[in-house]
């Protein structure tokens, strides 16, 4: 019993360490080919597969600088706070049918939403403690963005939870049916878009808009701490992709789900992660007011309408 828990946590840790690297490498290569380049080709001989390992070595060698005017302890703590919530979220995402999940949790969906929301504290810590006005601007932008998009994020997730009649993530995946793809389509879109905004990926990367704010709240970070922030971004992609896949795309459902369900889940996650990368290459960054407008005037009403629809269908079916 005890060593089973250890095994599960160990496997989640392995996923935590490998999946973001795979996503990062895919981003390198996909982005390069979308821009008619080749991307990394040298590190690791075959098509630069070890580029991110080399990057990690490079980051580890760099000097760890804390600006003199910065609030030292807060500054140094922020990257860890940014990373931790995503690690916790990975624990409860179901990989396959049965109990192929890090930790069964009765209110798993709620846990995920709550913990993802904690990431904004790390952003504010980093932004304020850097003692840099561009960092602070980036942090305030991030806080406004994350607070705003939390709403459609939670509402669209609530829609699918209502449809499934449970808050447990494995329960939602088990209750999923193919026709939900159509019925929950607005919620899928709202969830994915606000998820993108939650992890501050382009086109929602105003907090780190490099042409305006240098690098936003990450401006003053170097070496391993900066690498932690980057890692948090890529774990964020994994988390949002796997959540979208599990909640809206049916997770492990597919042909021969009993034996290769985990593969379906990974494939769907990968497909969503590819779309995340694709959007970064294809679309320009939104302006700050466009961002808030999209959230409050499009996504929130859409999510509310979806909730009404879901409730109506549930009542009609029961």
């Amino acid at each position: 019993m005890t060593w089973e828990v250890v095994l599960r946590v160990g496997l989640v840790a392995v996923a935590f360490l490998t999946l973001p690297l795979i996503v990062g490498q895919t981003e390198h290569k996909v982005m390069a080919h979308m821009q008619a380049r080749l991307g990394p080709m040298y590190a690791g001989a075959f098509h630069g597969w070890a580029q991110l390992i080399a990057d990690g070595v490079k980051f580890a060698q760099k000097e760890d600088v804390t600006p003199r005017a910065a609030d030292g302890p807060v500054f140094r703590l922020a990257p860890a706070v940014a990373l931790l919530p995503y690690l916790l979220v990975l624990l409860v995402i179901p990989l396959g049918p049965g109990d192929l999940v890090g930790q069964q949790l009765d209110v798993g969906l709620f846990f995920v939403l709550a913990v993802v929301g904690v990431g904004v504290v790390a952003v504010l810590m980093a932004a304020w403690a850097s003692a840099n006005k561009y960092s602070l601007l980036g942090g305030l932008r991030a806080a406004a963005q994350l607070l705003g998009y939390e709403l459609p994020f939670v509402l669209s997730a609530a829609s699918v939870a209502m449809a499934a009649g449970t808050l447990s993530l494995p329960g939602i995946v088990a209750a999923w049916q193919p026709w939900w793809l159509l019925w929950q389509l607005p919620a899928t879109i709202v969830f994915f878009v606000s998820g993108l905004a939650e992890i501050r990926r382009p086109p929602f990367d105003m907090p780190i808009a490099d042409s305006e704010l240098v690098f936003g709240y990450m401006t003053e970070y170097t070496g391993l701490r900066f690498a932690f922030f980057l890692l948090a971004e890529y774990v964020g992609i994994v988390v949002i992709s796997s959540l979208t896949a599990a909640l809206f795309l049916g997770g492990w459902h597919g042909p021969w789900a009993e034996s290769v369900g985990w593969l379906w889940m990974l494939l769907k996650t990968g497909a969503v992660a590819f779309v995340v990368i694709w959007l970064r290459v294809a679309w320009p960054r939104l302006r700050e007011d466009q961002l808030q407008r999209l959230c409050w005037l499009v996504l929130v009403p859409l999510a509310l309408a979806q909730l009404v629809l879901t409730a109506g269908v549930r009542v009609a079916l029961s």
Binding site: L113, A114, G117, V121, L124, A143, L146, L147, V154
Partner: peptide, 13 residues
């Protein structure tokens, strides 16, 4: 989890 979501995620922010 409501405490974490509302307090840490929203009120403290």
């Amino acid at each position: 989890w409501v405490q974490v979501l509302i307090y840490v995620g929203a009120v403290v922010v």
